[in-house]
Design a protein around this nucleic acid. Structure first.
Lengths: 226, 226
DNA sequence: CCTACCTGCGACACACTTGCGACATACGCG
DNA sequence: CGCGTATGTCGCAAGTGTGTCGCAGGTAGG
């Protein structure tokens, strides 16, 4: 069953990132850059989830939330800058169901969308097992296990590893990882990914200099052992 | 199979209307006029659905929802005045499954009850116990025991602990706790959760500086030992 | 009215994270 | 073999997350 996600966001770069991420997750994506547009499209298309940027040109996103809530029970997720915390409160009181602050981790946003969909409809299948050789990821506890022993990894390291293992051995480009994990805005510096891979190897490989799990594919990116 | 519906409502007229409607639909009806009464009867009779008015004398319906949710998966439907939309949001976050606003259309409410019954029909599980290592929670008495000894905890501390233990080792973000325990109003300030965790640790941990039960997951939130 | 506790808040300390830059090394290609 | 590019390695410093604790206003109970 194909779900539709509506994105109301005026920033082209962010909207683009959201679109690709959502399409990768298998959603149909609708886009609007203003509150007026968004309201019309929501009523026409009845999406399953709506993402709303609070900072919109013209009518504020807050009013859009209120308008939507007046006529629909569609789950609404607010996307906003971290500084506007009081707007977030107002947004939730206006009827939004959840929120994420920029800069957000795209994977997390996807997870929240799944949560909203689960609440508003039938339960979906459980998440796939994130296992690769001796490495095991537990999304519930945000823990990484190696041969049964917990390995301390940071937040971003966790998401990168999750993305790689979830790809089941396919190569992921640096761009792909930047978009999926970092989200947006960091496209300028590619070496960030290399660095993170280096650090990850030090944590999960027996011999980090000769990786056997987290492999380099020269000219393309990285992949996990099949 | 006869289903039982519990009604927690202080307004005699409304309660009467609900009773007749429900009996017409073939349900057995239990009634309570206060949250305390409701809590007791729910535990004694284990109804299949609970209707809760948010405006109750004494303990607020919201707290009743939290108490119920802490020990039971019974479907909860909130009944409230249209003006208290903020409370509805908090109620859903506290664990209610649905809501209707007064004045409600009785037929619609009956339909929603059927929906809840359909959803809860299949997965009949055993009640989860709120126990984690030496810590034991008794939702009946709002008491926390540690190695059998009672530990004085405040209201909010109790709910946070209940939420954490109920999560069975899964990580709960600060946002999650804020919304589940505090409700939507306080979404702005983050350190409140850290503080409460700190105080909880001083009460339940042997060595609060090196917690073994209430663990930090840096970048994600907190979780109980598995 | 008084008291004790609860609760949110802010300030500071400390550890960890993370982006970045510099240099080293490996690989591909002519 | 030699050069250019891609990637590995590693240290640094600013930024961020979290622990700790005292304070003060609020609240409930005596």
């Amino acid at each position: 069953m194909i779900r539709t996600v509506m994105v109301v966001e005026d920033d082209d770069a962010i909207r683009m990132v959201l679109r690709t991420n959502l399409e990768d997750e298998g959603y149909r994506v609708l886009e609007a850059t203003t509150a007026e547009q968004g309201l019309v499209i929501v009523q026409d298309e009845q999406p399953d989830v709506v993402l709303v940027d609070l900072r919109l040109p013209g009518i504020h996103g807050l009013d859009l939330v209120r308008s939507l809530r007046a006529t629909s029970q569609v789950p609404i997720i607010i996307v906003t800058a971290q500084t506007d915390s009081h707007d977030v409160v107002a947004g939730l009181e206006a009827g939004a169901d959840d929120y994420v602050t920029k800069p957000f981790v795209a994977k997390e946003l996807m997870a929240r969308i799944r949560t909203q969909l689960r609440r508003s409809a039938q339960p979906e299948e459980s998440e796939e097992e994130l296992v690769c050789g001796p490495i095991e990821l537990h999304p519930d506890t945000a823990e990484v296990m190696r041969n049964g022993e917990p390995v301390p990894v940071s937040r971003i390291e966790f998401f990168v590893l999750a993305e790689l293992i979830g790809a089941k051995g396919r190569v992921l480009s640096r761009d792909h990882l930047l978009r999926k994990v970092w989200g947006y805005g960091n496209a300028g510096d590619g070496r960030v990914v290399d660095n993170l891979i280096y650090r990850l190897r030090n944590k999960i490989e027996d011999d980090p200099a000769n990786p056997e799990l987290l492999l380099t594919v020269r000219g393309f990116g990285y992949r996990m052992k099949a």
